[in-house]
Design a protein around this nucleic acid. Structure first.
Length: 297
DNA sequence: ATCCGGGGCA
DNA sequence: TGCCCAGGAT
């Protein structure tokens, strides 16, 4: 149950949302449920500002699950461009194929069915249920975890996956009506993305600064590292995989990359071969007998 | 617990 | 540079 302060915060956030929500193209009922799902998958670990142009082109090209299901993999991988984590592109197409075959092209409307789809985890399933279908469900993402931890517990959220305590708090705070719960989810998430940021929150312009336990406590531990140090990118397999895929995306449709040109992409032959093999395992590239590479059909 | 891209920012 | 980002799969 919500107390008076919780209610006050919910009202303030809803009002703030009304005049501060970013005008993203999949918001405000302008996209199908499938379009919302695509936006959520593209947004996994990727900032919205980078997603927008990709989403717009993608939905124009493949407006629904059936269209994406029928596309050649090579086109899907190429259209994913530099969004990162290209396996998301393949999973999104697998998801489209499942929806096309098993659900007659229409996205299912239950959490359990959604979360069973390829590339759809707890966050994405919840987000689609809330944002696309208007159902009352607690959405938990990194922004919401941070905002709730700060505003209501006065602490920074811990790293790792969401704890049971965090989930229970999110459920407890979720407004009772379907419609209001959707606004709540979006508003809390939006606040985390644009005001209550991880490193340098803009408390001066926060609509709930007066009610925030974190601010009241003097923002303890602000900016302190909450997650394990990230693997550096330079020199990692991720960089090498990215180079290989970038070279393949640059080829004319159906083209292949000669072995000699593959070898020129990275000096460490052992690492290069391991990365090519892992890309092959992932289904992102195909290796021909002569060692040249191409995108899969 | 680790792996998986890439861009943007102080 | 280091860190963060609307996570998911293994």
């Amino acid at each position: 149950m919500m107390n008076d302060t919780d209610t006050d915060i919910a009202l303030r956030l809803a009002a703030w949302w009304e005049s501060n929500a970013r005008d993203l193209p999949w918001r405000f009922g302008r996209a199908t449920a499938w379009g919302v799902l695509v936006s959520e998958v593209m947004s996994q670990q990727t900032q919205m500002s980078r997603v927008v142009p990709y989403w717009t082109a993608w939905m124009e090209r493949w407006p629904d699950a059936r269209a994406l299901a029928a596309a050649p993999k090579a086109e899907v991988i190429t259209a994913w461009g530099r969004l990162g984590y290209p396996r998301r592109a393949l999973r999104l197409q697998e998801c489209a194929r499942t929806v096309a075959e098993r659900y007659d092209g229409e996205l299912p409307r239950t959490y359990d069915e959604l979360v069973a789809l390829p590339g759809v985890g707890d966050y994405t399933a919840s987000a689609v249920m809330s944002f696309a279908f208007g159902e009352r469900i607690a959405v938990i993402d990194t922004n919401i975890r941070r905002v709730l931890a700060r505003a209501f517990r006065g602490e920074e959220s811990l790293g790792g996956s969401a704890s049971q305590v965090e989930r229970e708090m999110a459920r407890r705070l979720l407004p009772e009506s379907d419609k209001v719960s959707v606004v709540w989810n979006q508003a809390v998430m939006e606040l985390g993305a644009t005001v209550c940021m991880a490193k340098a929150p803009l408390c001066e312009s926060c609509p709930i600064a007066g009610q925030c336990a974190f601010l009241r406590n003097g923002r303890p531990g602000l900016g302190q590292r909450r997650t394990r140090p990230r693997q550096r990118f330079q020199g990692t397999d991720r960089q090498v995989r990215g180079l290989v895929l970038e070279a393949l995306r640059g080829l004319p449709s159906g083209g292949t990359l000669e072995r000699a040109r593959v070898e020129r992409l990275w000096e460490d032959r052992v690492q290069l071969d391991a990365c090519v093999a892992s890309l092959d395992d992932d289904g992102l590239v195909e290796m021909l007998p002569d060692g040249s590479l191409r995108l899969p059909e």
